[in-house]
């Protein structure tokens, strides 16, 4: 049991990173990770030591995330608010920082399934095979989501936010 817990512990930083990128909010990210860890520990029997513990944990976390979205019925419009301490000594327009902020914003606009595929591969460095197991989709689907994610990300950054994003604010009651 202790060994199992130690192995889980080693995966936590990556789970937090994935959750943070997925939700765009570090507090929600840790809520999600906590849910996944609790489930993993309750369902320890379901884990077969022959597989990768990390993939299994990512799979649990992904499923919880999907269920959370479903339970809300409607996907929350993912919009980022960047909060940053204003430091007048640094010129505000550093291109690198802009690229970061824009990527983060654009990421939030990707459909969830595309965001999950992209993050598992590009951020978490999972192989395509591992990613298909975690997401429980065939490789062709993974490739198509990955391709669309990269295309959309580029387009949103190049052309600004998709116009449909505006609706969220207006339709909010």
């Amino acid at each position: 049991m202790t060994k199992f817990l130690d192995e889980i512990e080693a995966c936590i930083p990556a789970l937090r990173r994935y959750a943070g990128a997925l939700t765009g909010n570090w507090e929600h990210a840790d809520d999600l990770v906590q849910d996944a860890l609790e489930r993993a520990i309750r369902k320890q029997r379901l884990w077969s030591p022959s597989g990768s513990l990390q993939s299994w944990l990512f799979k649990l976390q992904t499923n919880i995330y999907r269920n959370d979205l479903r339970r809300q019925k409607r996907r929350p419009p993912l919009t980022l608010i960047d909060d940053l301490t204003v430091d007048p000594s640094i010129p505000p327009d550093q291109p690198a920082r802009l690229a970061l902020a824009e990527t983060k914003r654009a990421l939030a606009y990707l459909p969830d399934e595309q965001r999950q595929a992209l993050l598992l591969v590009a951020l978490e460095g999972f192989s395509y095979k591992e990613a298909t197991v975690i997401l429980d989709i065939p490789q062709g689907t993974l490739m198509s989501r990955l391709g669309r994610a990269r295309k959309n990300l580029r387009q949103i950054i190049d052309e600004g936010l998709p116009p449909k994003g505006k609706k969220h604010l207006r339709s909010a009651k």
């Binding site: 939700t23 765009g24 909010n25 570090w26 929600h28 809520d31 959370d68 339970r71 809300q72 409607r74 929350p76 419009p77 993912l78 919009t79 980022l80 608010i81 960047d82 909060d83 940053l84 301490t85 430091d87 640094i90 505000p92 550093q94 690198a96 920082r97 970061l100 902020a101 983060k104 939030a108 969220h168 604010l169 909010a172 009651k173």
Partner: peptide
């Protein structure tokens, strides 16, 4: 968990982050 309880307006603004301060790359 606050995540589920928020109304749409709140959820819209839910994604705060902090500390992306100047000069992260450079």
């Amino acid at each position: 968990n606050q995540w589920f309880g928020w109304q749409s307006m709140a959820a819209m603004f839910a994604l705060f982050t902090i500390g992306v301060t100047s000069g992260w790359l450079g």
